[in-house]
Lab assay of single mutants.
Amino acid sequence: TETYETTDETEARKIAEELKRRGLTFRIERHGTTIRIESD
């Protein structure tokens, strides 16, 4: 499991693209301005 936290929408998108490219599944949670991406 890898966890990323960012407040930057663009960075979050880049992380999501990278995880997809590596064939990982992940979920995105939003907590206020923080975007949390957690891979399975």
Rank of each mutant, 00 (worst) to 15 (best):
T1H: 12
T1Q: 11
T1P: 12
T1R: 14
T1V: 13
T1D: 05
E2G: 08
E2Y: 15
E2M: 14
E2A: 10
E2V: 14
E2R: 12
E2D: 06
T3P: 03
T3R: 13
T3K: 10
T3A: 08
T3L: 13
Y4L: 02
Y4E: 00
E5D: 05
E5C: 13
E5G: 01
E5V: 13
E5W: 14
E5K: 04
E5T: 11
T6I: 06
T6Q: 01
T6A: 04
T6G: 03
T7I: 06
T7W: 05
T7R: 06
T7D: 12
D8L: 05
D8Q: 03
D8G: 02
D8F: 04
E9N: 04
E9Q: 06
E9R: 06
T10E: 15
T10P: 03
T10M: 12
T10L: 13
E11L: 11
E11N: 04
E11H: 07
E11V: 12
E11R: 05
A12N: 00
A12Y: 05
A12P: 00
A12L: 04
A12D: 00
A12H: 02
R13A: 13
R13M: 14
R13W: 13
K14S: 09
K14L: 12
K14Y: 10
K14R: 14
I15R: 03
I15F: 08
I15H: 05
I15P: 00
A16I: 15
A16D: 01
A16G: 06
A16N: 01
A16M: 15
A16Y: 07
E17Y: 10
E17R: 11
E17L: 12
E17V: 07
E17N: 10
E18I: 08
E18T: 07
E18Y: 11
E18D: 13
E18K: 07
L19W: 06
L19P: 00
L19K: 01
L19Y: 04
L19G: 00
L19Q: 01
L19E: 01
K20Q: 11
K20Y: 10
K20H: 11
R21Q: 08
R21L: 08
R21H: 06
R21I: 07
R21S: 09
R21P: 00
R21M: 08
R21W: 04
R22I: 03
R22H: 04
R22Q: 06
R22Y: 03
G23F: 02
G23R: 03
G23T: 01
G23E: 03
L24H: 08
L24M: 08
L24A: 06
L24F: 08
T25C: 14
T25G: 10
T25A: 11
T25L: 09
F26E: 02
F26S: 03
F26D: 02
R27D: 04
R27V: 09
R27E: 04
R27H: 10
R27N: 06
R27C: 13
I28A: 02
I28F: 06
I28V: 10
I28R: 02
E29N: 07
E29L: 13
E29S: 14
R30W: 14
R30I: 14
R30L: 12
R30A: 05
R30H: 10
H31P: 01
H31S: 08
H31G: 03
H31C: 10
G32A: 03
G32R: 02
G32N: 04
G32F: 03
T33L: 13
T33M: 11
T34M: 13
T34F: 08
T34V: 14
T34G: 05
I35Y: 10
I35H: 01
I35M: 02
I35K: 00
R36F: 07
R36M: 05
R36Q: 03
R36D: 00
R36T: 07
I37D: 00
I37F: 04
I37L: 04
I37K: 00
I37E: 00
I37S: 00
E38I: 15
E38H: 14
E38F: 15
E38C: 12
S39D: 02
S39K: 06
S39L: 15
S39G: 05
D40V: 14
D40S: 14
D40H: 13
D40F: 15
D40P: 15
D40Y: 15
D40I: 15
